[in-house]
Design a protein around this nucleic acid. Structure first.
Lengths: 220, 220
DNA sequence: CATGCTGAGATTGTATACAGCAAGCACTTT
DNA sequence: AAAGTGCTTGCTGTATACAATCTCAGCATG
């Protein structure tokens, strides 16, 4: 239990925001394991602050679905379950498809996607950090903040499963370059219906890939 | 022998939960007006508790998108804006369509929808309180908690706009019984693609209705 | 008159104190 | 031995104290 201290004031984050980001990183990176108990005083001691910011961060984690809390009984990091993973993939497929359809409908797709996609192809897609992967571009051009935020949250919740497969979080939408290509082609061509269909199929393909590489013994 | 667990008393809310519910009600009912300043100490005094539960409730409101907070600068109830309303309707249309499609895909639609719909028809659809309106049923049978929670949140954020139109929150999906009927018919018939299309069209029709009845002078 | 400084008041951010709930353990009772 | 009882301990829920920061009126200065 190495004590981590907040940097003096580089980005003007409040303690609560810093703790929140720290805990999110710990969860998606696997430093806080699924099912692990989250104790306010211990986390506060480890991060060198009082309980108050930790509480605030806990509530945020709960709202994001990364942890689960009960009244007077503390909380735990969410456990990884097959059924939840399926729901996450399913929801991501729907949201992504909707974003693709909306992007086409508002005519943004043909302009943006092509250029940015070439660029990202050269720069290697990245997951959470960079903003050049397929999903980030999609969420940016869809023009609906609610859908894009929902999608980003879902993708964040999927990262622990991705890690469980032994893959780095950065190479998240990696399989099926072909599937991606089809969706992008449809978007650029302005075919909304095809874009939705291909986008959904692409994510569901990733789901099936995840299912195959996570046997019952690893993911209950 | 068998341990008898004390029945979890659902009426015993923690102070934070109570404050949160109170503030949500105040916002959607219009007792807290859009743009109104939210001061921790004043709310705490009005509700007879300390700042701590109020803070917690504030963060929850922020996560739900019902209020907006800035570091060291307090917060305000979200202002009603045309563009936001359009995004909300758009997102609700997409999420509802996705739920309809999923419900059909998993075969739940034909069994549930028919019966429950008859029932709700008799009992008069209700908004937030009851669980018998079209959206609640849809979110229940879609089988994906992420999508249904997203949809419920969006619908909650739409209620202030609905109130601005002079309609009670309870009669929310009211227009276009015809539109609803078409969507439900497609779901019962097991036609997922048609269910998606009709569901989306129904919500977008509600959006257009709202646009027409809210001139620039009322909703900037 | 415009502009910039300053200090008081207001408000949020954080720490800490205290009370209450919950689970575990030893002890008693049957 | 099984079940009940009260204590102990650890943790959370809430209140309150203190620190940091913002706002804005008032004044000095060009």
């Amino acid at each position: 239990m190495t004590r981590v201290h907040r940097p003096k004031d580089p980005t003007e984050l409040s303690a609560a925001e810093w703790v929140r980001q720290q805990l999110i990183d710990d969860i998606v990176a696997g430093r806080l394991l699924p099912g692990e108990k989250l104790c306010e005083v211990k986390i506060a001691a480890r991060l060198g602050c009082s309980r108050t910011p930790v509480r605030e961060a806990f509530r945020h984690l709960g709202a994001l679905g990364l942890a689960h809390f009960e009244k007077n009984r503390g909380g735990n990091v969410v456990r990884l379950e097959r059924a939840i993973m399926l729901e996450l993939f399913e929801a991501l497929a729907e949201v992504s498809a909707a974003c693709a359809g909306l992007a086409v409908a508002r005519g943004e797709a043909s302009r943006w996607t092509l250029a940015e996609r070439e660029w990202s192809h050269a720069a290697v897609p990245a997951g959470t950090g960079s903003e050049n992967d397929l999903f980030s571009i999609l969420f940016n051009i869809c023009g609906n903040r609610l859908l894009s935020e929902a999608g980003a949250t879902i993708r964040c919740r999927l990262l622990p499963y991705w890690r469980l497969m032994g893959k780095a979080a950065e190479e998240w939408p990696v399989h099926g370059e072909a599937g991606q290509a089809e969706a992008i082609r449809a978007m650029v061509a302005g075919n909304g219906r095809a874009a939705r269909r291909h986008m959904r199929a692409f994510v569901l393909m990733a789901r099936d890939q995840a299912l195959r590489s996570l046997p019952q013994s690893i993911l209950p």
